[in-house]
Design a binder for these strands. Structure first.
Lengths: 165, 165
DNA sequence: CAGACGCGTTTGCATTTGCAAGCACCGTGA
DNA sequence: TCACGGTGCTTGCAAATGCAAACGCGTCTG
């Protein structure tokens, strides 16, 4: 009876993926466990879909396999495998120096520009699915800016930085 | 009253990041807990750093906050080493769908955000060392926008919903 | 004043993660 | 035949996650 891992399909996929990657690397289970810093039996259970590894363990396994953590997260269903839209959008989303609010503002402005230029928007993201949220996202360039509180005044949300020199 | 000290380079205090994002979204702890599908007390403990949420919970919180899961993972120190980001500025400059004016607006806004966050030059990405854009315009963000004449109209069909419902 | 509703927090407990120890199996060699 | 080293798998058990219930606090309403 080929047990198709019907009990835990979600973690089953990640386990299969890990095992497959391990086989491709041609290393034993114990070896990967050592490299990843997790115990051998636990890795065995993970590969067979009996356990649901935490993000930390997942990250360590990714390191041990020398593969990207994101690939594992996608397999684990923890990251939506979104389409690679514009480079600018991707870069904005990956930027860690922005708050999420600022990021959304920037994305809104960018898409406004593209609409102005009649550029077809690439695969839209989850932004369009506005759930029953108490605060609807304001649209329009100055609207989103006002949302952040940095539009009207020269130093609304921005420090009156006396630019040097 | 968010901690103005430093929020971005702090890796490990995922709770502070979540709480900060929640405050920015102006929603209560219980509301976020409901939206994220986690219990209120557990979310409270997560925000205060008393518990380490699993990847699944992290993902649900990201969904509840409507921010990218990857941002949370980065904050949790689970993705950090990945090949993370093509620089936002580089992507903006490489974008052929923007006019030069629009590009400059985006860059200025991006710079304003970074100043808000007290982020220095884009030194986080070691490979992208192109800070050729020297000094941004000292005028306010709205001034730059007004110069483009895109104060509120670029996207028709979207109503400037008055917040404060 | 009592009662209801909101907030964030604390407490006790079921469930789970993740590991140390041990199991069964296979190939090699004396 | 045993002993040695290798593979992966199963078994208890400490520690942690994650939640339901309840608490204290402030505010609004009668």
């Amino acid at each position: 009876m080929q047990t198709k891992a019907m009990e835990l399909p979600k973690v089953g996929s990640i386990g299969e993926y890990i095992r497959d990657q391990r086989k491709q690397a041609k290393i034993s289970l114990r070896q990967l466990a050592t490299q990843a810093g997790v115990s051998n039996p636990y890795l065995s259970q993970i590969e067979r879909g009996l356990r649901k590894p935490s993000a930390e363990i997942l990250n360590q396994i990714a390191k041990g396999l020398r593969i990207s953590s994101q690939a594992l997260y996608v397999q684990a269903g923890l990251i939506e495998d979104r389409e690679p839209d514009s480079d600018v959008l991707a870069a904005m989303r990956a930027d860690r120096t922005l708050t999420e609010r600022q990021r959304q503002v920037l994305i809104d402005i960018y898409e406004s520009f593209r609409k102005e230029n009649h550029v077809e928007a690439p695969a839209e993201t989850e932004r369009t699915s506005q759930n029953a949220w108490s605060e609807p996202e304001p649209q329009g360039v100055d609207a989103v800016l006002a949302e952040e509180g940095l539009t009207s005044s020269p130093n609304g949300g921005i420090k009156p930085e006396p630019k040097e020199g």
